[in-house]
Nucleic acid binder design. Structure first.
Lengths: 402, 402
DNA sequence: CTATTTCGTCATGCCGATTTACAAATTAGT
DNA sequence: ACTAATTTGTAAATCGGCATGACGAAATAG
């Protein structure tokens, strides 16, 4: 006999769909598809018992999903128990594909992921994009996209959407790059420079990295903090399986959390921001190195060779990260903190001091800090999977488009 | 042609209800009730056009809500336009009531709020509860609750639930007080010490204060940060109209965000936590005052008299709050920050330095900081209204209990 | 006084899930 | 082997809930 808690609860699968009978049907289609995808091959009866509908209802839902090419019938299950064996269902490997693309500072990458989560096609092209204007870069990217789409179509897939990860701030319209300092882009509408005909989503690299961790990491909780560093230091806040974006879409600016209120001045106007201690430029300066092309690789290499200046610089950066994360953890009480993106390569030298600092400042159980297995692959995979998730969340929306 | 964003989106009205026809009905009952409550007296036709159902459907929903005693027919509207005038509907003033209770350090309070949001009964009893054991305090509270319930029943209301605000950490079961340092309570299950027969929710004072601000404040956004100070400094994070609670339910511990990493030691194990600069004890010490009973009143009084020591202490506290809030704002990008609870009395002396610090450290538009109109009333009202909200969110659940 | 507009309600139909029944395919038991 | 029991998938009937269309009621406009 307990009244409900009023709490932030993002709707996972099944977003805001109208509360009518059609909406109900669409949500139930999504529930069936999600269940089959997540829990391996299942019979109709197994799905029914899991989502709380009757076998008859699930039967019609499954029929519709099969007709749409989203589910496949694998044939009769090998009978182990009494009773008639069920007919195994699995998500189709020849249905819609999510196309993910990444515009990096010195590479372009595109991949195609099917409903099962398998990467079915991919291309990477190295080459510095810093300070190239958007048009030629996006023309090159468009060409790569065409290649990957063609390859995917050769395997019987059809593209359901395109998601592009960029290293910069993206407006809430999910098309316009407001500011990407590493590329020198600002206020660029990617919608008019990329192949039309595909639903387009553009988002920050760090956000897609966090989503990849959420969807593909093993044992990743539904509430965590994902930290990644490009030139700036970004944190994505994941609450109950969804990204917290903030009113202006600028949530997660960990780089400008004050670490030492009287520290050196920062471009943001503040003093002693985390970026002054753990940003790439600051770490390179502290280590006595020149910025060059592959900055992270350089640091990791020197640290591995035992360069004490570099190691000290990274230790100090870890400590500063620890201070900033103490604040974030106290505020958000996440289940864990994950270091992703380029940071994962530096983790061996950052983690000890970071964990020390966090533990010292925490009463009670310490929030665990781990390193993403995905590494620099995260954003690209997150982008492609975001398209796949959109299909899983509302199968009826794409059913007609095969 | 834009794919959906993956974002944290808590479900406001209409919690997780099964995706069946009954669930749909229950959500639509809630939508009708919410609409009538929020938009004043409305005809059936007006409700129908607002929520996108037909007049016929709304008619049956309204009938059910009237039979349950949640809506009332006020009679024909005064005709101003052409056409037959509608029959005005309003939420009932003789239906269910939310009972809110507050256990303060030196007072107990109980109130009853009806569906319209009007406070229909209230009692306050002064008296120090610090270091009294839970049993006698809760026995006293139970007596006050009986009084208020009796008074409410005299006005034709019936109690739909009880929500209790306590100054301390509450477990996620919403019954057990884990730790309330100001009261000296720990691991106390309020469920067995309060009147049975009423659905019970226990929560932190600061959380209820934030919900009150969300529901009762004028122009309060759906994404904001609510800061309140008792002995500790708590912040409630409101995301899209719901509380962010954290995995362990400990989110919002603003008091232990590091402000100066090398500052004085704190009980939490860290150094230079915000509490060391802006906590009540710290401010009293900095002002050269002795802790006594009405600590906030003392500070406010001295500051109003022009005591320069007190004013300086409060200015410095505001600056420290500004540093900590800069971090929080960078991380969460809220639409605004609201100072509530006891802090509102000290706002005149805290705000200038707080705003200065926040503005100095922010590039671009500064997050606005305001003061709650509700003041120390917030938690009690929030508690009572949380029960009312639960009824509005699922009228069918209480329909049978009249 | 009539035409028009809007409101509330009723009869009907459609859609979607449940209920009930049944054939099919397997295991368990004699 | 043969029967009983169990489980699966589907078809037919039923129920719950909203939409549609038509109607009387109550107001304004001319």
């Amino acid at each position: 006999m307990t009244a409900p808690l009023h709490e932030a609860r993002p709707s996972g699968p099944g977003r805001a769909l109208p509360d009518t009978q059609q909406g109900m049907r669409r949500r139930n289609l999504a529930r069936v598809l999600h269940t089959v995808r997540a829990q391996g091959p299942l019979s109709r009866a197994a799905v029914a018992s899991r989502i709380g509908l009757t076998r008859a209802a699930v039967s019609t839902l499954v029929d519709e999903l099969i007709r749409s090419g989203l589910l496949e019938e694998l044939g009769p299950e090998r009978p182990g128990r009494v009773g008639r064996p069920g007919s195994a269902l699995a998500v189709s490997g020849r249905g819609p594909a999510g196309i993910g693309a990444e515009v990096g500072v010195d590479h372009l990458a595109v991949c195609a992921v099917d409903l099962r989560g398998t990467t079915r096609a991919r291309t990477i092209r190295q080459g510095a994009n810093r300070d190239r204007s958007p048009q030629p870069v996006l023309a090159e990217l468009t060409e790569l996209i065409r290649q990957v789409v063609a390859e995917a179509e050769g395997e019987g897939l059809w593209p359901a959407g395109l998601a592009v990860a960029v290293p910069g701030l993206v407006a809430r319209d999910a098309r316009t790059v407001v500011r990407a300092p590493n590329l020198g882009w600002h206020d660029t509408d990617l919608g008019i420079l990329l192949p039309a005909g595909l639903p387009l989503t553009v988002d920050n690299e760090a956000n897609f990295g966090a989503l990849a961790e959420l969807w593909l990491g093993e044992d990743t909780p539904r509430d965590f903090l994902h930290v990644s560093a490009e030139i700036g230091i970004g944190a994505a806040v994941v609450v109950d399986g969804g990204l917290l974006r903030g009113t202006r879409g600028f949530a997660g600016e960990l780089g400008h959390v004050p670490v030492r209120p009287d520290g050196p001045e920062c471009a943001c106007g503040g003093r002693g921001c985390l970026e002054q201690y753990a940003g790439e430029e600051a770490v390179l300066r502290a280590a006595g190195l020149e910025p060059d092309e592959d900055r992270v690789g350089l640091l990791a290499g020197r640290a591995a060779q035992g360069d004490e200046n570099v190691r000290r610089a990274l230790r100090d950066a870890g400590t500063a990260l620890g201070v900033a994360l103490t604040g974030a953890v106290n505020l958000l009480d996440p289940e864990s903190v994950v270091l992703g993106g380029e940071l994962s390569g530096l983790a061996p030298w950052l983690l000890p001091s970071l964990r020390d600092e966090l533990a010292r400042r925490t009463a009670g159980p310490v929030c665990p800090v781990s390193v993403s297995r995905l590494g620099p692959e995260g954003p690209l995979l997150g982008a492609a999977h975001s398209v796949v998730r959109a299909v899983l969340d509302d199968p009826a929306a794409v059913a007609g488009r095969a």
